[in-house]
């Protein structure tokens, strides 16, 4: 009834997060709204590693990053490193993070995302000559507000489908 101890649910939510990550806005909407997209994949991954640290490994996080690289047309390996770093942090401090309120958790992950976002921006600036700017703060801020939604949605899912 529950193959892979519910591991497929983790995979499924990650795939959903990837769809959200590349879902684009209608063409008539202004372009800068694209900067406000929360880092869905990182949020979902962070949730799972915090709740089930034994089920989400660093290598799996790195592979997820590889898929994100292809979806976002980033150089291969870039998002893998960033997601692995986030996963490592969640894994290292999961006892503490679980005790936090969603505000504190959101603040922690926003800080993490500011760090990884800055690395992402600087690497692309070095490789492609892309611009460097304060827009890097927009996505972590929106991720902070998206975190409770991710938390509630995944909690609700887990109540129906047990994952251990």
């Amino acid at each position: 009834m529950n193959p892979f101890r519910g591991g497929w649910l983790i995979l499924f939510t990650l795939l959903c997060a990837m769809v959200l990550a590349i879902l684009h806005l209608p063409e008539t909407w202004p372009d800068w709204l694209g900067w406000l997209r929360p880092a869905w994949v990182a949020l979902v991954l962070f949730y799972w590693v915090m709740e089930l640290p034994d089920r989400v490994g660093l290598v799996a996080a790195w592979m997820t990053g590889l898929a994100v690289d292809v979806l976002q047309a980033d150089p291969l390996g870039l998002n893998g490193a960033l997601l692995a770093a986030i996963t490592w942090f969640g894994w290292r401090f999961y006892e503490r993070l679980r005790m936090y309120t969603w505000l504190q958790q959101g603040a922690v992950i926003a800080m993490l995302l500011i760090g990884t976002g800055t690395v992402h921006m600087v690497v692309l600036a070095l490789i492609d000559g892309r611009g460097v700017g304060w827009h890097v703060l927009a996505s972590p801020l929106m991720s902070f507000f998206a975190w409770p939604m991710v938390l509630l949605a995944l909690h609700a899912l887990r109540r129906r489908i047990p994952v251990s």
Binding site: V59, P75, G77, L78, W91, I127
Partner: peptide, 20 residues
């Protein structure tokens, strides 16, 4: 895990260098 993370970061650095 710390070693593994370091390894993965190095792997990423390698693939990035290859990609560029």
């Amino acid at each position: 895990a710390g070693y593994l993370l370091t390894g993965l970061l190095l792997l990423s650095a390698t693939t990035l260098a290859l990609e560029v």
